[in-house]
């Protein structure tokens, strides 16, 4: 009856998304009156026992070096073995880049119903009903999982990390791994940047910025806020900014704590990808811009004047000047 959490890593480090799913898993286990276990694949350079403070009591670690890079097929096979050995009936992933690759495969392998993109704890009072976003955040749906074993993948930034006390018992798990067919040849990381989907704060700019040469002040603001950068679709389409910054219904969907939109009109397709942000700030020179209807705070004015002042005020707040 236990809950099993997939602890996702990158280059040996536990991802922030994993702390969210651990905290979520611990809460679900408490709700079900059971315990939560974790599974980690590949080489890890961190002290896994310390993850006990997020509520996990036992971590199965499959150390095989063939698992240092993701091959969803191999990963699903190994996780299925851990599920069988541990008798878990609920498996939790982050609905991040890796969860999206592995969870659907595991769902087929275990014939376990999957709800991807959960945004709240499941209702387990009568079966298992999970709330998730649909229509790119314009609505939500409650989905019933009808199978014995169930899989939930949790939207990034949808559940708060809860740290307490405790250490986890880390047990090596010997699995049949197999040879990955996906052979990773290189990893390109934008160093020092905050990954967009994990960021607490996102600074985003649109066509109102006029051209790529004006992004310096946006980057500056993002830097002092320790924020990730994002942009609207026309900005990415015009190659002012890279594609991986494009947020919205047809770009990346995000849910940071704070979303700052500069010179973005707030078209319905843009809002769809960002409306789960907890606090939205809009800076736009047009008081009629639709984005103001979705905002918590706003300034009507010229971004070129406001952004440098914004940066200065943040620096002052943080004692940086």
């Amino acid at each position: 009856m236990s809950v099993l959490v997939f602890i996702d890593t990158a280059e040996g480090h536990v991802k922030k998304a994993s702390l969210e799913v651990l905290s979520y898993g611990a809460k679900v286990a408490e709700q079900l009156g059971t315990t939560v276990e974790g599974v980690v694949l590949g080489t890890v350079s961190e002290d896994l026992a310390a993850l006990g403070k997020y509520g996990v009591r036992k971590i199965h670690h499959v150390k095989d070096g063939a698992l240092d890079h993701l091959d969803a097929q191999v990963y699903a096979g190994v996780i299925a073995q851990v599920v069988n050995a541990s008798g878990a009936s609920l498996i939790i992933f982050s609905n991040n880049v890796d969860g999206k690759a592995i969870a659907p495969r595991l769902s087929v392998r275990l014939k376990a119903g999957l709800v991807s993109g959960a945004v709240a704890l499941p209702d387990t009072s009568n079966g298992c009903v999970v709330k998730k976003n649909v229509f790119s955040g314009k609505a939500f749906a409650n989905i019933a999982v009808k199978t014995e074993i169930k899989i939930i993948s949790l939207s990034p930034n949808a559940y708060k990390i809860i740290a307490g006390e405790g250490t986890a018992e880390v047990v090596p798990f010997t699995a049949t791994v197999g040879t990955p067919k996906v052979k990773v040849t290189s990893v390109v990381k934008a160093s020092g940047e905050v990954p967009l989907t994990e960021a607490e704060i996102v600074v985003s700019a649109g066509r109102g910025l006029k051209g790529p040469e004006n992004w310096g002040m946006v980057e500056e603001l993002a830097k002092v806020l320790h924020a990730a950068l994002a942009c609207s679709r026309p900005v990415a389409d015009a190659h002012w900014r890279p594609h991986n910054e494009h947020v919205g219904q047809t770009g990346i969907a995000i849910a940071p704590n704070l979303y700052i939109a500069i010179g973005i009109s707030g078209a319905i397709q843009h809002l769809a990808g960002v409306n789960r942000s907890k606090v939205i700030v809009v800076i736009n020179k047009d008081p009629e811009a639709p984005f103001f209807k979705a905002a918590d705070y706003g300034i009507v004015g010229d971004a070129f004047e406001i952004i440098p002042k914004f940066t200065e005020a943040v620096k002052k707040l943080k004692g940086m000047v």
Binding site: F140, V145, G298
Partner: peptide, 19 residues
């Protein structure tokens, strides 16, 4: 393996505070 129980619309924001 799953079925939709029901749908809902997100709460609307209280309104923007302009500075």
């Amino acid at each position: 393996l799953t079925s939709i129980v029901d749908f809902g619309l997100p709460l609307v924001k209280a309104g923007v505070k302009l500075v």
